[in-house]
């Protein structure tokens, strides 16, 4: 089933987390809405294989990678397409050209960096856009270097460079919330210094504002770092209770004051009666 929506509702960071965690394969099409009319629309295509980003392009003409190679003067368009004729169908073009000695491993890395890391990271700046993920689209061998990156690694890089966070304002963990680690041990992803500092607090009990105090950083900054840790699937937001609990008859709602402090078990016959009663209403 294709998934469609607007980035203002489901941000690119959330989408990448979803695609990585769901080990999704397919094509993510992002149509940036920068102005009005057709001129204000610009398409971006990102291909995923098992939750990893394998290629990106601004068109579906399958010429993006060849053009990039040509621009760097490594191989003419004609030569590249002639060599690629001999590739086994489905083999990433980059790997095929490398096998034929036309490109080096280092060149493939540079290509992947410009094609995926640079282009995709820039998309985090988009204020709004329409997106569609189609899991039925086959992988584009002609656009693939053969390298890939976990979607969340790209998210981390994209969000680190992000200047304007206003589009994500209501997605950020609350300053009264804590973070709790959801991985075993330490993150495999390379974190920067402030991310490590915040990571040290992922015990589920220290609020982001308290972390900000300890690190002497603005709380907004800590919320942004916390969001990065959350969308890269390292930590989860745990809301803390705003006020201290003091159970007085005034504060406790009347419905509940009749109830015991802890839920006591209900009997099997009660449950059977209840289910029987509800079945009558179905």
């Amino acid at each position: 089933m294709a998934i469609t929506g607007y980035l203002a509702e489901f941000s690119l960071a959330e989408m990448f987390q979803f695609l990585e965690q769901g080990c999704k394969t397919g094509l993510l099409n992002i149509c940036a809405l920068t102005g009005s009319g057709v001129e204000g629309q610009k398409n971006h295509y990102i291909w995923f294989n098992q939750g990893r980003i394998v290629a990106a392009a601004s068109s579906l003409n399958q010429q993006g990678l060849v053009t990039m190679i040509g621009q760097r003067g490594w191989l003419g368009d004609r030569a590249a397409s002639r060599l690629s004729q001999t590739c086994t169908i489905g083999t990433p073009m980059g790997l095929c050209l490398k096998a034929q000695g036309a490109l080096t491993a280092e060149q493939l890395k540079l290509l992947f960096y410009s094609q995926v890391m640079r282009q995709v990271c820039a998309l985090f700046e988009l204020g709004d856009g329409w997106f569609q993920f189609d899991p039925k689209v086959p992988l584009p061998a002609a656009e693939m270097t053969g390298l890939s990156a976990p979607a969340t690694e790209v998210t981390l890089a994209g969000l680190r460079a992000l200047k304007d966070w206003s589009a994500l304002a209501d997605k950020l963990p609350d300053s009264t919330s804590a973070l709790i680690s959801i991985i075993d041990g330490k993150p495999q992803l390379r974190l920067n210094q402030v991310e490590w500092q915040v990571w040290e607090f992922t015990s589920g009990s220290v609020s982001l504002s308290a972390i900000a105090n300890q690190l002497r950083l603005p709380v907004e900054k800590i919320q942004q770092v916390a969001f990065r840790l959350v969308v890269s699937a390292l930590a989860e937001e745990i809301p803390l209770i705003a006020e201290p609990i003091s159970l007085t008859p005034e504060t406790e709602p009347a419905e509940l004051s009749v109830a015991p402090t802890e839920a006591s078990a209900v009997s099997q016959s009660f449950l059977q009666n209840l289910v029987g009663f509800l079945r009558g209403k179905v």
């Binding site: 809301p239 803390l240 003091s246 509940l256």
Partner: peptide
């Protein structure tokens, strides 16, 4: 979206 003491009472019971 504020999680106050009310939530706590509700889930404990």
């Amino acid at each position: 979206s504020r999680f106050d003491f009310m939530w706590d009472i509700l889930i404990r019971k």
